[in-house]
């Protein structure tokens, strides 16, 4: 475990050195993500200039949910972005051999190799939204609120990472699965708004099938209302744990099925 932490530090510092080489690239990526999120916030602002409440949610509450959704999303983006490359090209080109010949866990090695600093654009938006909305909301604040929030964020990030790992692992059988990752990943946008605005089918989908609702709306609604801790917080922890176990299982089965590109 300690060895892995030390390795992680080395990998990140290596990556940061590479980044200094391409400063503008990094800045442009982060600015792009920042603008993308800012425009969505503007969309919410325009909506609320027409109506006082959206299905019973005030402007500040919607911003809180939106901001909350960006935190696990950006953390996952920051640390595991290389899974996209597994799905798109690493397996197809046979480059995955490299990860199997090192004395560290292959999933760990793949994710640690890329440290996607662009994600700071999303994270910054999330933090700004939270720090704008929280003082304006009359939220119940307990001694356990902050530690609980940290735990929830970890498990919510795990939901993202697990879903990406599973879909990336499909490429071990099919050679490429980037588009499957894309298809599943995009449904995370549903979690940015209160789940109550969707119809039953979508609600079921994002709660029980692809549980992105647990990355933002459910935990955020617990912090807002103090109700349903078991479902809102417990659900996030269970979904995160179960998906991660399943993801590891699929990943390991996939590695056994992996055949390098012949050449």
């Amino acid at each position: 475990m300690l060895r892995y932490l030390r390795l992680h530090r080395i990998f990140i510092s290596q990556h940061l050195k590479r980044l200094m080489e391409y400063k503008t690239d990094f800045l442009l990526g982060a600015i792009g993500l920042l603008i993308a999120q800012a425009l969505q916030v503007m969309f919410i602002g325009i909506i609320f200039s027409q109506i006082p409440e959206l299905e019973g949610y005030t402007f500040d509450e919607v911003l809180f949910i939106f901001g909350f959704s960006l935190i696990p999303k950006s953390l996952d983006h920051l640390f595991t972005d290389n899974l996209w490359m597994v799905g798109y090209s690493i397996v197809r080109k046979g480059d995955f051999d490299k990860y199997l010949t090192r004395p560290i866990n292959s999933l760990y090695y793949v994710t640690v190799e890329r440290f996607c600093v662009d994600a700071f654009g999303e994270m910054l938006t999330g933090i700004l939204l939270l720090s704008y909305s929280i003082p304006r909301l009359s939220m119940a604040f307990h001694w356990y609120t902050i530690p609980l929030a940290l735990v929830v964020v970890i498990f919510a990030t795990l939901i993202y990472t697990s879903l990406k790992t599973m879909t990336a692992a499909i490429s071990f059988w099919t050679k490429a699965s980037g588009h499957i990752i894309h298809m599943l990943y995009m449904t995370n946008d549903f979690s940015k708004y209160p789940v109550t605005i969707y119809n039953k089918a979508v609600q079921t989908l994002i709660t029980y099938v692809i549980p992105f609702a647990f990355t933002a709306y459910y935990p955020a609604s617990f912090f807002l209302t103090d109700k349903n801790p078991l479902f809102c917080i417990g659900g996030t922890v269970i979904a995160g744990t179960a998906l991660f176990a399943l993801a590891l299982f699929i990943w390991n089965r996939g590695i056994r099925a992996y055949e390098s590109a012949g050449s």
């Binding site: 990526g29 792009g32 993308a36």
Partner: peptide, 8 residues
């Protein structure tokens, strides 16, 4: 790298 600029 066109990724960032195309996102913008």
């Amino acid at each position: 790298n066109l990724w960032g600029t195309s996102l913008i």
